[in-house]
């Protein structure tokens, strides 16, 4: 079983590597959205630094969400997804492999890119570790929750927009706790509670979402 899962993980990562163009898009998107904010709102660094956590968070989540549309799409189209649902390895674990590798190739790079962009928005440097930590947790939760949405919309031609509509409202708590942790830190207030709530949501999503994703795939693939 571990062997099969290792092979699944290797397949996902090597496929991501071979579809490199898909990988770069979320990063470009992140960069563009964040640089549009100073242009659209104000170049005043003080105001920007106040907005920075929210802007970085929302932009990173949208970037990650846009790429989630492809989470199951290729496998659905070539028929690999059906085989995974029929596999003697529990499909929930296979799905979890897919989610984790999605995070490794999207959420993690976005997190790593965020310090650069936070400098452009004048976020205090001391907040950087917390920004990266919350973003890492947030994008992981998004990959987990979003996989349910991706599974629900996999058979649809214009799934991407629908996926955003379905998932974003569910994601409000994560955005609130993530951004308020950073803001609290910057303002010298306690921030551990927000961070632990963020962690709790991520853990909950980790447990629940593979099951719901497979249930959703049973509906959309097993039509």
């Amino acid at each position: 079983m571990m062997l099969a899962l290792a092979q699944m993980m290797r397949r996902e990562l090597s496929l991501a590597n071979r579809r490199r163009a898909d990988l770069a898009n979320p990063l470009f998107f992140f960069l563009i959205v964040v640089s549009l904010f100073p242009i659209g709102v104000t170049p005043d660094l003080e105001k920007l630094s106040e907005m920075a956590p929210g802007v970085l968070w929302v932009a990173a989540l949208l970037a990650s969400l846009l790429s989630l549309d492809l989470l199951f799409r290729h496998d659905y189209e070539d028929g690999s997804l059906e085989q995974m649902l029929l596999s003697s390895v529990p499909p929930q674990l296979l799905v979890l492999c897919k989610i984790l590798s999605h995070w490794l190739v999207t959420g993690l790079p976005l997190t790593l890119l965020s310090p650069l962009l936070s400098v452009m928005l004048a976020l205090p440097g001391s907040a950087l570790p917390l920004l990266m930590l919350t973003l890492a947790l947030g994008t992981l939760t998004l990959s987990l929750l979003g996989s349910i949405g991706a599974a629900l919309t996999v058979g649809l031609r214009k799934g991407g927009l629908l996926l955003t509509i379905l998932i974003m409202p569910l994601f409000v708590p994560v955005i609130i706790f993530g951004t308020s942790a950073i803001q609290a830190f910057v303002n010298g207030m306690p921030w551990v509670a927000q961070l632990s709530l963020l962690g709790a949501i991520a853990a909950g999503a980790f447990v629940v979402s593979p099951w719901l994703t497979v249930a959703a795939l049973d509906v959309t693939v097993g039509d």
Partner: peptide
Amino acid sequence: AHRPAVTLQQTPLENLAFAVALHN
């Protein structure tokens, strides 16, 4: 199946090995 479960970005070797892996 009707959809052949052949991933185009992978080699025949990888495709076949993955099909076996799915059978644990």
